[in-house]
């Protein structure tokens, strides 16, 4: 299983802190999340940062990134703070 963690407004819109999935790739996981939480969430996902085990994968294989059992995928909206 892959653990999906949601943060900031993604958590608020989803109404939960995350979910477990069998998704085999990041693309599959994002599609599942969009279907699970609806249109507003899907829109926010378009500018979300995706970390797989703490690593940003936008510039790597991005949605084609393969997932394996035990991976942790963190989804963040664009943040500001500090």
């Amino acid at each position: 299983m892959v653990e999906v963690k949601l943060f900031a407004s993604l958590r608020t819109v989803a109404g939960e802190k995350g979910f477990l999935t069998d998704a085999a790739s990041v693309g599959e996981l994002l599609r599942e999340a969009a279907e699970r939480y609806g249109e507003d969430f899907a829109k926010r996902l378009q500018i979300a940062t995706v970390l797989v085990n703490g690593k940003n994968i936008a510039h790597l294989r991005w949605k084609r990134t393969r997932l394996k059992d035990g991976d942790v995928v963190s989804l963040f909206p664009p943040l500001a703070g500090g």
Binding site: K5, F7, A8, S9, T12, I47, L51, G54, S74, F76, P77, P78, L79, A80, G81, G82
Partner: peptide, 23 residues
Amino acid sequence: PATGEELPRFGTSIFVNKCNATH
């Protein structure tokens, strides 16, 4: 999205989880 939503909604501590995830 950063200054209009996330920062007002969650404050500067919004970075706790992100920093945690990135070591």
